[in-house]
Design a protein around this nucleic acid. Structure first.
Lengths: 335, 335
DNA sequence: TTGAAAGCGGTACCAA
DNA sequence: TTGGTACCGCTTTCAA
């Protein structure tokens, strides 16, 4: 593989000049420039990012740390982050923690060694302490879908609590009297907020019962099991708010396998609006998070930090939107 | 951030010695070693992979090029590749081509600049020519789910044609008389093979009709539209073999929206056995590809090439397995 | 407008 | 067992 020296020799100039034309900075005579360009082409020269990073002290690479790449929510984030990053000339290295704190820690170590320019975190296992450490070492960080009160990190999320309230209110509006909640892991911020939103509305309507909250681990299987548990305890349940779409889908599946139908016997609403939710049968009502928009802004702020622009390290919550679909439809005969 | 020189000074040794203890190679006195280790800890020193790569001429990084990260098939591959790579001390940088040849080419350029040690390709847009070029430049390549006859590349896939035949035969066994095929893009190897498998079996049973093959672009939406088209042309269709699970799901959805039910009115079978297929309702019968196993072996062979071990650059096809589920069940009254 | 040369942070060879 | 040092391929002053 040709090096900058090969190019400089062939073009009959110094490496400094070659560097200037590659980076389009500094003065360089038009004629000189052309002969360099020709030499580059002739040698099929591709500058080594490795060497560039070492000399220039930046890698043009960021990392995206996710909890679980098999959960469709994360590929959606990943797709957004990557699309936006590439526009700015950045590559992203995707790290899948598999919800495993050790694997995550290992990744963080590797990322530091790789001297990435910044890190975007969409992982539930990460602790505030680790984020603080990253920042102390001068690595820009932005966090998605989490909150660390009292910590100075930029955090982007949606209005989880409000969304949850909207979801539950929607079930009530559709005629549900006994509403269960399949929650995410309650040590996860978003899951907790959604559970609180559920509590608030059920309380206000005097239909709150602690036993109606069952954890479902944010997965299809978890949602499946949670629904069965819920139904065993409360056979008269007629509405379910699932803490995310995946669990909503699991719940519908469990109902189906129990010969109960959605929305006829029980209405179900999820959260997130992943692609799958409108493909499922019945189509899953949900609370839409602006995933792409959030991710895009998150990247934007990460870049700002990387470029040493002053920004306020705080948290923003995006608006959510109720998407009523078939899974919460009020049927004729009920009306 | 501390450098190797900082460590050497604090420990009172030379950088060479520090390098030796970091890399656990060469002789180093136990006492010296400990003082180095202490210095490393005291300074929170993390060796720069950048500098290491530049000096050592290897990056310990491979790339995985996929067609579409939003298609669950690819996160599954990605998960497998990444899990296995990390075990060997390799990081993987995930590149999502979005089925866009230009974006893909851009990525390949970036990857060359990054001097990655090898590249794993699971992309439908890539051309044999590009692979040849990579190889000529000395970059190890392994390809998943494609075939390039006449080209010297290691290619891993499953028995697509055979699997397709099994799928169609299964539909026939379940009593289907008129079987349509929703195909993937026919310029994609796997899609073509599956279509051929379909043709072979339908021909043998004298139920082959060219019009019964409709393309569905390997996506849910495409499958949805393809089914509608198929049904409009052939209202008496009673079985559908979808070229992948996603299209199978789209087809079932389309049927459902047309008030036709699976498996009662029409039976549907897919291909791949993505996670979702057994969650969908009805559960989708499918042909299982050993995705994890294939990916694992693909990585294994990529590493062999990276380590300059001699291997035969050829193609292997893995066995597939019929997974009959609800979507092709023969109902009582039909029996 | 161009070039010489000093790094960037490691590795590895050769001497000691 | 250790240390000195010449690279790896590029960027970036500083001088010319």
């Amino acid at each position: 593989m040709a090096t900058i020296r090969d190019v400089s020799k062939l073009a009959g100039v110094s490496v400094a000049t070659v560097s200037r034309v590659i980076n389009k900075n500094g003065y360089v005579n038009e004629t000189t420039k052309n002969s360099v360009l020709n030499a580059i082409k002739a040698l099929n020269y591709k500058p080594s990012s490795i060497a560039r990073s070492l000399a220039g002290m930046k890698t043009s690479t960021i990392a995206l740390l996710v909890s679980d790449i098999l959960n469709p929510f994360f590929p959606e984030i990943s797709h957004a982050i990557e699309s936006e990053a590439i526009k700015q000339g950045y590559s992203v290295i995707l790290c899948n923690s598999d919800n495993n704190a050790e694997k995550e820690a290992e990744y963080i170590k590797i990322l530091k060694e790789k001297r990435i320019d910044g890190i975007m975190i969409a992982s539930y296992t990460i602790q505030a302490e680790q984020i603080k450490k990253l920042q102390e070492e001068g690595i820009p960080v932005v966090v998605l879908d989490r909150e660390f009160p009292g910590h100075n990190v930029l955090t982007l999320m949606c209005k989880n609590r409000e969304g949850a309230s909207m979801a539950v209110q929607h079930l009530i509006d559709q005629g549900c009297k006994k509403i269960g909640h399949i929650s995410g892991p309650l040590d996860v911020y978003a899951a907790r907020e959604r559970a609180i939103g559920y509590e608030e509305v059920t309380n206000k309507n005097n239909i709150y019962t602690p036993g109606l909250i069952v954890p479902g681990g944010f997965s299809i299987d978890g949602g499946y099991r949670a629904l069965l548990e819920l139904y065993a305890k409360y056979p008269d349940i007629d509405g379910v708010f699932a803490g995310n779409d995946l669990m909503g889908i699991g719940a519908i599946k469990a109902l189906y396998d129990s010969n109960l139908y959605v929305p006829k016997n029980i209405k179900v609403i999820g959260f997130d609006d992943i692609d799958l939710s409108k493909t499922f049968m019945p189509e899953l009502s949900t609370i839409k998070q602006p995933i792409y928009e959030m991710s895009k802004m998150a990247l934007h702020y990460l870049m700002k930090q990387i470029n040493n622009e002053d920004i306020v390290l705080t948290s923003y919550a995006y608006e959510v939107e109720l998407l009523p679909r078939e899974s919460t439809k009020k049927l004729e005969k009920e009306a």
